[in-house]
Amino acid sequence: MEPFSLFSVLPLLGILEDFDFVIKVFVFAYIEFYLYMQLRESQLLFGIATLIAAYFLLYQPIPTIFLVVIFVIFFTMGAHLQFLIQFGLYPLLRIFGIELEHPEVAEQKKMQEIQKKLQNGLELEEMEERWLEAQQKKDANYNKKMQERMQRHYI
């Protein structure tokens, strides 16, 4: 086995340096795009903002890149991301048995499936019957509490 040598790792540093430069170019392009959208009516402000953005990107690259990436992912792609997670990632994880969606949404879906089975005249499994009984008890408790609250409110 060859002894570990830093010279075998150094080419990787060159590659990382190149990728670092490319990421900075991408980030600078996005910053310029958003600055132009905001400041297109005032060229002076656009120029000053460009210089400030360039300063931050050159001297404080890590927080600048992090903030721009967060902005792009959550503000620009926010709705897109939400749709992807809710209708892409969650169903994918459900196939592997991991349920991450809001429990009320999952409960509603389960209730709909059970009601479909009952409407089609199929028999429910033991687990489903127990779950249905537990849900009905929970609903009855909830209704009782709401009634008591209403009575207290009106008295």
Binding site: F83, L84, F87, G88, P91, L92, I95
Partner: peptide, 9 residues
């Protein structure tokens, strides 16, 4: 990726 909900079921 929007096709995922169509295929996953």
């Amino acid at each position: 990726l929007y096709l995922l909900p169509l295929v996953l079921p």
